[in-house]
Design a protein around this nucleic acid. Structure first.
Lengths: 231, 231
DNA sequence: ATGTCAATGTCGTGC
DNA sequence: GCACGACGTTGACAT
């Protein structure tokens, strides 16, 4: 990894065009050719960047560029598209390289898959007497997150989200339409389950007769831990 | 901005839990407290991070941590949530700071807003005789990108996307349902306009009687430039 | 390779 | 401040 602090201007041409006027920034060049242009603020997104795989070509400035104070020109070309980044460097304030090696990578806990596993184990959260049929129940248009039965034996399709948005309601609606055409399954009721449900999503869901259930991940994980300790 | 190359392990606790085993990485600390943990590959997303505003507290390791080779402990606490990042440093290979100053920021061209402006100016692309009513026509459930009239005086609602996906068709469908309940507007026809339209989206749209129009941004910008040169 | 869906999404904008 | 939609979304996973 090469780290350069430089006064520079940056131009991106690809899916759109974007330009950065001259300022002092961090230029990060990764081993796979990725280039990131960072300022000293903001979240993790760079001001401008090139995704890997890419190649960096360093050239001398043209006479005209040199006249305007440019001392070095970087051209970064994406390998798989015609996206390109041009960096006009006016002054290099620091330049160092380090060998980092491969990274073992990130281990996550608490994503939608974990929520799905916990809800399948604690299916009673949908209401007393519910039983699990299966997770990832396949339909022609994709998998329903959880299929269950209510105490009366009716089929219940659960769409699960960490954050419940209109998109999720639309997705569940499509599943319900399809499944309710199948006489072996119909009638199928829908449940929209999420850690948080946006008001607009709740309104749309209830308009369509879809029940909304808010899930408490920490509580569910607590139950899971308690159950684990029994064994 | 402070740049540290260090062998370290990282733990994030917040909206989910995530952990990075020990390895050599870049730690970037920005002026607003943001912390980024980057490996030497992958796109612009860090392996782990803390969004600003945040504060970094550096402490000595506990006896137990020191025994496992930790020489320094960083605790990064988000200011507005209880998200936190803990970085256990085993060895610092480089450590430098630079003053970058504020950044003038990025100038973009070619986003959906530009496409919308161009289509409004070149509304005939929807078909001969079309006229613009207005952009961002507000409805109860959100703004319709472009409202127009066809040569027969019928109302046309345009949903505009750079990439035409099923989501966009659903969005337009919601608008059309609502507007067609309004006797002053009905009947309203729908047009799904995008630079690229996915086959699934096209199928769904045409199923619902929504016309699909593919837009050529470069050509539209060319016309725009040509018109500009007239004045 | 391609398509689909989640994301610690982030980022801007309008209310 | 909240809510909503775009994003050069990126990234993981299944087909």
């Amino acid at each position: 990894m090469r780290l350069v602090i430089a006064r520079c201007s940056v131009t991106y041409e690809g899916r759109l065009n974007a330009h950065l006027p001259p300022a002092t920034r961090l230029l990060m060049v990764k081993a796979d050719g990725a280039v990131l242009v960072h300022s000293d603020g903001g979240s993790y997104k760079p001001l401008n960047w090139m995704s890997p795989p890419a190649t960096l070509h360093t050239t001398a400035p043209t006479a005209e560029q040199a006249e305007q104070g440019v001392v070095e020109v970087w051209r970064v070309q994406a390998a798989k598209s015609d996206d390109r980044l041009m960096i006009l460097i006016e002054e290099i304030l620091a330049d160092q390289s380090h060998e980092l090696g491969a990274d073992p990578g990130l281990v996550k806990d608490g994503v939608e898959a974990d929520l799905q596993r916990l809800l399948a184990e604690q299916i009673g959260l949908l209401g007393d007497g519910h039983t699990l049929v299966r997770r990832e129940y396949m339909t022609a248009i994709g998998p329903v997150d959880i299929l269950a039965r209510d105490p009366e034996g009716g089929t219940v399709a659960v769409e699960l989200k960490r954050r419940g948005d209109i998109d999720g309601v639309e997705q569940l609606t499509r599943y319900l339409e399809l499944m309710n055409r199948d006489p072996l399954l119909a009638p199928v009721r829908g449940v929209f389950a999420a850690q948080q449900i946006k008001p607009q999503a709740r309104t749309l869901a209830e308009d369509r007769g879809i029940r909304c259930v808010t899930l408490d991940y920490d509580a569910m994980r607590g139950v899971d831990d308690a159950e684990s300790r029994l064994f």
